[in-house]
């Protein structure tokens, strides 16, 4: 009896907590969305819901001659998906190699990668720019995909490796005894087990491609090749008359694919979560 009451209390408290968290998360987001409907260029409005609403910014987003939003959108989609796939592959094989095998230089490599991630990024951009210029890859999407994917190794490696570390060693040994070679073990056993980690890497790289404007604006020259982030940033940065509300409208569109991807990838979380949940 007592147990049930305390359970109820806990559950109620949990829901309240979650509701509070969601309010806190969504309030600024709601502000951004609402300001995309507000006339004028500023994000500022004296009331939460603007005094007058307009679709002008959305219209401008698609009709303006200066903006090629559709093209940018599709560009970004392309870059994001390719980066997501390539980076997931790279991170997984690197993490797997470093986690499950022992060889000389292993610990040194790990420390090295850790250390590499600590350099402030923007100074190295000039060097990457020249490198890409030598390879003739400037103003291409391939350059972005490559840089994003390899860059994500540095950031995601430890997530992936930590994950692999927690998988029991027994599984591989059992498979090897059954005669499976290294490659088979990797593809048939390790990969399926590592779904949550794959999801994490995929999601972060995908999002990264949508929001990065620093590197993308350095590499992409022609307007037709821009990604959404570059286009929107350019709009906000031109002159002193920054067009924030248009940016807000664009941001709403950026948020859509990312949220959708997440909703789709959620199922890989679910299977584990319910199983691991506390009981009673």
């Amino acid at each position: 009896m007592i147990a049930r009451k305390s359970v109820k209390f806990r559950v109620m408290a949990s829901y309240l907590f979650l509701a509070a968290v969601v309010c806190w998360s969504l309030y600024p987001a709601a502000w951004v969305v609402l300001s995309s409907f507000k006339p004028g260029k500023s994000l500022y409005s004296e009331t939460f819901i603007p005094k007058s609403l307009t679709l002008a910014h959305y219209v401008e987003l698609f009709q303006s001659k200066s903006l090629m939003f559709t093209t940018w959108y599709l560009n970004t989609l392309e870059v994001a998906v390719l980066s997501m796939l390539l980076s997931t592959l790279l991170v997984t094989i690197t993490a797997y190699a470093l986690s499950r095998f022992r060889f000389p230089w292993r610990k040194a490599s790990l420390t090295l990668i850790l250390v590499l991630g600590m350099f402030p990024g923007f100074m190295s951009m000039v060097a990457v720019y020249i490198l890409l210029m030598q390879l003739g890859l400037l103003d291409t999407h391939a350059a972005l995909v490559i840089v994003y994917s390899f860059g994500s190794i540095i950031f995601n490696l430890f997530v992936a490796k930590g994950f692999f570390d927690t998988l029991p060693k027994g599984i591989e040994e059992a498979a090897r005894i059954d005669g499976a070679g290294n490659f088979r073990v990797f593809t048939s056993i390790m990969l399926p087990l590592s779904k949550p980690m794959l999801v994490f890497v995929a999601l972060t790289t995908f999002t990264g491609a949508w929001v990065d404007f620093i590197f993308a604006s350095l590499v992409l020259r022609s307007k037709e090749k821009w990604t959404v982030a570059v286009g929107l940033y350019d709009m906000v940065n031109s002159y002193q008359n920054a067009y924030f509300t248009l940016f807000a409208a664009g941001a709403v569109f950026i948020a859509i694919p990312i949220t959708l991807l997440f909703m789709y990838l959620q199922r890989f979380f679910v299977s584990g979560l319910t199983a691991g949940a506390n009981k009673g």
């Binding site: 698609f62 303006s64 001659k65 903006l67 090629m68 559709t70 093209t71 569109f253 859509i256 959708l260």
Partner: peptide
């Protein structure tokens, strides 16, 4: 999510400039 995806894509392409 499918519906939202479809809607936004059609919007994006239909209104393309």
């Amino acid at each position: 999510s499918l519906v939202v995806a479809a809607l936004s894509l059609t919007m994006v392409t239909a209104c393309s400039n």
